[in-house]
Amino acid sequence: MNALEVNKLSCGYGAKEVIKGVNFCVKEGDFLGIIGPNGAGKTTLFRAITGALKPWKGNVLYKGNDISGIEPRRLAREVAVMPQILEVPFAFSVEEFVLMGRFPHVGRFGTLKEKDYKILEKSLQLTDTASLRNQKLPELSGGERQRVILAQGFAQEPRLLLLDEPTAHLDIAHRVRILDIVRSLNKEFGLTVIVILHDLNLASEYCKRLLLISEGRIHKSGPPEEILTYKDIEKVYRTIVVVEKNPISGKPYILPVSEEERRRKRD
């Protein structure tokens, strides 16, 4: 069954159309990566999928229902969203912050029960943040912060996880750590994952399927081996690359070629 269906979606800001008629489906249990150059419309597409941006044309269906018609609390029990930027102006503790993920289940008047605290523990444990529970959010490092935001998303007990560049501004160890957690959520708990990634090599390594976006349209979609070819990358990103095979995983990996090397080759 399709977890998510995007039909003839067009949307944008003001008078500018950013996404121009996009169609795709995501099956339950899939791990879909959205890639594409800066300004291709990845985040715009993402915001339309989360329901934050209203489509101009077409629609987004979650399990067959139009996402804009689903009441926020009901949707939040099914879909967790990790935005690219999350500013937290007040110093909530990690535990308080993660427990906010229980809101869709508990509501305004309900009290947190044993079950909620169990899920809190599980979320902290899965994201390796249990030792941070009493720390305040502004005190955390970038990597810790992203793990805590992920823990909050897991506490929602969603079926679908939407992530917009969860590894931006992190070093290579933390990138791998975050995506390892996301992969385990996908494999062990069967969560469907849609993730925007900037780093093509990480996308190749972790995603089952990729969606290459170019100028508001889908350039190509399929498994990493079919998408990450030098022809497609050079066409969409307008830069010269070399694609090799990762000797460990067998997945494609992309090597950039500098201007200087390009000239030397030509001469």
Binding site: G51, P72, A76, V81, L86, V88, P89, M100, F103
Partner: peptide, 24 residues
């Protein structure tokens, strides 16, 4: 006081609050 839990979540911004189930 009734809305204090909503208020906690609204400090994360309108969009994130909506994703956590608050009709921001």
């Amino acid at each position: 006081l009734i809305f204090s839990r909503d208020l906690n979540i609204l400090t994360l911004g309108e969009e994130k609050a909506m994703h956590l189930g608050v009709n921001s």
